[in-house]
Design a protein around this nucleic acid. Sequence first.
RNA 1: GCAUCGAUGGUCUAGUGGUAUGACUUUGGCCUUCCAAGCCAACAGCCCGGGUUCAAUUCCCGGUCGAUGCACCA
Length: 577
Amino acid sequence: MAETSDIYEKVMDVARRRGFVWPSSEIYGSVAGFIDYGPLGAMLKRNIENLWRSFYVFQEGYYEIECPTIGTEAIFVASGHVKEFADKMVQCPHCGEYLRADHIAQEHGIENAGTLSSEALRATLRDLPCPSCNEPLGEADVFAFNLMFQTTIGPGSQRKGYLRPETAQGIFTDFPRLLRFYRDKLPFGAVQIGKSYRNEISPRQGMIRLREFSQAEAEIFVHPEEKNHPSFHRYADYTVPLLTMERQAENVEPVTMTMRAAVDMGLIANEYVAYYIALTHEILTYIGVDPAKLRFRQHLTEERAHYAADCWDAEVYSERFGWVEIVGIADRTDYDLRSHAEHSGTSMTIFIPYGEPRVVKKRRIVPDMGVIGPRFRDKAKAIVEALAVSEPGEDGVRITIDGEEIFISADLYQVREEEVEIRGEEVMPHVIEPSYGIDRMLYVALEHSYAEDEVDGETRRLLRLPPAVAPIQVAVFPLMNRDGLDTIARKITDTLLQHRILAQYDDSGAIGRRYRRQDEIGTPFAVTVDHDTLENNTVTIRDRDSMEQVRVPIERLPGTLSALIAGNVTFHELSKV
RNA sequence: GCAUCGAUGGUCUAGUGGUAUGACUUUGGCCUUCCAAGCCAACAGCCCGGGUUCAAUUCCCGGUCGAUGCACCA
């Protein structure tokens, strides 16, 4: 443990010292669960988010929306967060333990303890012993603890609001608008990157459990009976380590297989879920997660939300925290849309036309209102409704209205056989939801890219961040601060910046020290101007990981570096030319 | 939240009832023809609040943050 926690200490030490992650509002005393991203951390985070966008927005074509972080109570009543996110708790006056009030009552044989009010629970608990210290709970107060931050909207505390505990609800509440935007066709998706808030009781795992955190969520709306992804071929042969329910029960290692096989064998519920498992694997390895420390774990039936058809977590192994959930990929069925439709009264369905209109034979019972109206007066309406669903006999039909049996003779209605053309049906889409914790992605990228080398008997600390996410992309050094080398190096820096390559000039101290500084913050490439530059206009590009150098003409720097950063060419390939 | 332990420049640390040691880093200069070299100089610190005391970074109480265990983690 001492050795494993070391890595966390070392990573966080670099993160603090070099401006990746700082305790928030440190000068007034920082608060657990809140962090600041310093200049390099903010840059790294933005790069990770943009990489995520390149997959979900550019590759998948799911456009990004942005909703408020504060929502009215109604939204979270419908989403279930007001009810499900709040626990009735009690603090034992003797030992100070926080306990679930309803759980204690339930254990002592109280039926439906979960539905009792706080007052009723308090009365019930008075004579019950604390499960922790066995002293009676007495007059201990029962209070609801909801993990959502509450606020009020406008003056006078009139309207209750909550800080969103996930970004997803904004996409659900915009569903009717999104449906029009995507011109009434399934499947379509929308994504959102933003802050979410959960008032964690005890956030004690550094960047892993924050009270304010960033999520990147995609909500993909699909036809309930068509869960084959149109581009499934992209990942059909992609292999991913899967820790299925069965393998968890048998306590065996994950099995690595193709997505095609996993779907065919029924291990993954459908192509959509499989597709995003593979895509997630690709994103995570892209940002620097070690594939050997990445697995996809299926939720067990009892931990899965009752409405979810299937749910997988991308878990990354951290030396410090063990297997950490980084991404959740769930088939949420139509739970969210159904709930918002019921609570808001707004239709959340899409009309799907059939290929061919279907002709259906229907029997319609048409009442003779001229007779039924005057004869039955105030019962007439109820009779007509009952008649419509009745099964008439030859001479009439018996129906029951308010317990009274009434015989309606056959001359009071006509039975017509009609052919009705049905052109399609209203369908409530199912939702596939990949949900990413950006802060956790950033942490594991740091932890997995942290490395220590031995160079000439000295330890070299470095972050092996992939060039695409590294906060600083290129460092530019004059070998020595004279003979005009510095002037050339500054000019190169400006040129690179103009090409949107984030370059940093440094002429302070010995060259070796400058390389080390950049190694520690993960800068993948360093350009050095030396005396040969004065002769032939070439400079060296030095590779962070191998510490090797190649010479290239100055005018080819922007193109070469861009290709290296984009991953179109590797340094190894470059050095062979 | 409870219990135990801890908190000294950016980092690691010495030490103390009378304002603090050293190293590394950083900054400026000298030197230096590619991986934390050397020399000179400079910047910078006792977590916050209250108490005891002539005097508190030091002792006491409370808080904050961190580590560990328990609880919590839709």
